[in-house]
Write a protein that binds this DNA or RNA. Structure first.
Length: 314
RNA sequence: GGGAGCGUUCCCGAGUGGCCAAAGGGGGCAGACUGUAAAUCUGUUGUCGACGACUUCGGUGGUUCGAAUCCACCCGCUCCCA
């Protein structure tokens, strides 16, 4: 394969992607590209566990804390911007180290995948949403079945988001999203990725770590961060969908207790981690490193180095 | 001390004679995922040698062809009066 090699550190939340990514970047003269839909925003360092200047340890980071929380980013926009960073890193003969938890974004970057043509969230989308509200799902499902039977067959009738998107693509471009997806799936990847996966052998240990981390976030001033973010971003901002923020807001408004909110954050984090694992599990190329009880980065760095050496990254 | 009520599957909570292994929600587990993805959607969730069988609805005993549902007593909890 002639594609440029990149290193990808993946895994569920709280398993140490950030730390290992930095260690590997240091060791292999790389630069970190964060692949995280929420760490992109400024002012969310605590809640998204973004690395501090000290933790970065001199390793250049990209795509972390670079966007205004009021902005609406999207997968397509993210992939485009991240790819620019990667190209730039490669041009300087450094190793791109992608570290992040947003599976869709990472896969799209590695594949060099363009999302379906046309825009999203524009007039067509608004029209679809209006139709949905006025006439319900039936007519839209019928339209999809007529126009893009493949998508109609694949999508669950309750999957409103994806059904609207499929219709949006068709109405805007005259092409079906299923065809676009099929074609793009067959394209060769843009990069030659080496995946290092980090996970806990025992789910209970992951839970312990998540709980501990949430407590640490609270101690580090997450409530203040949430308050500031809420003041800086509109209520429908993507940034406010982040775990930690949407749970803490009701507590800050006195509508629920702080303790309840913290429990909610822990719960939602666990569920998020589980979904991340589901996503990752279908990628057979990942070289997994499993934590036994506690995280031990010196050990993980050692294993990762062995994997990298064996696979020949350099 | 007197009175009213409650105890259901991991949790909350329906169910008041057969259609109940027991609604619904939560949680768990599993899956999906191509422009909001830390989002969204789906399946599953008593046990087993599983188109059937077995155990379960605080406990024990009873009524009945048949009980989570009716009766008696017991245990535990809640509330009210005093």
């Amino acid at each position: 394969m002639g594609q440029p090699k990149i290193l990808c550190v993946v895994g569920p939340t709280a398993c140490g992607k950030t730390t290992l990514g930095i260690l590997l970047a240091k060791k292999f003269s790389g630069e970190v590209v964060g692949v995280d839909s929420m760490q992109i925003y400024r002012g969310m360092a605590i809640g998204t566990a973004a690395p501090s200047e000290a933790e970065m340890d001199g390793v250049p980071h990209h795509m972390v804390g670079v966007a205004d929380p009021g902005e609406q980013w999207s997968a397509a926009r993210f992939v485009q911007a991240a790819d620019d960073c990667i190209q730039d890193i490669l041009k300087r003969n450094k190793l791109p180290v992608l570290a992040g938890g947003t599976g869709l974004y990472l896969d799209a970057i590695v594949a060099g995948r363009a999302f379906a043509p046309g825009s999203s969230g524009g007039a067509v989308r608004r029209a679809l949403e209006r139709e949905l509200e006025e006439r319900g799902m039936e007519p839209l499902l019928e339209e999809l079945a007529r126009v893009d039977p493949e998508s109609a067959g694949r999508l669950h009738p309750a999957d409103v988001k994806r059904i609207l998107r499929a219709l949006e693509v068709y109405r805007e471009t005259g092409q079906t999203i299923s065809r676009h997806n099929r074609v793009s799936r067959e394209m060769p990847g843009k990069y030659d990725p080496l995946y290092i996966g980090l996970a806990f052998r025992d789910r209970e240990d992951m839970r312990t770590l998540i709980d501990r981390r949430v407590d640490a976030m609270m101690a580090a001033g997450l409530p203040e961060e949430v308050r500031a973010l809420a003041a800086a971003a509109p209520g429908d901002a993507t940034a406010l969908q982040a775990i930690g923020y949407k749970e803490l807001l009701p507590a800050l408004e006195g509508r629920t207790s702080l303790e309840a909110a913290v429990e909610e954050i822990k719960l939602r984090s666990r569920q998020y981690a589980k979904r991340q694992l589901t996503w990752l599990r279908r990628n057979p190329a990942i070289h997994w490193i499993y934590w036994e009880k506690e995280r031990n980065f010196a050990w993980a760095l050692q294993i990762a180095t062995e994997i990298i050496t064996a696979q020949g990254l350099q």
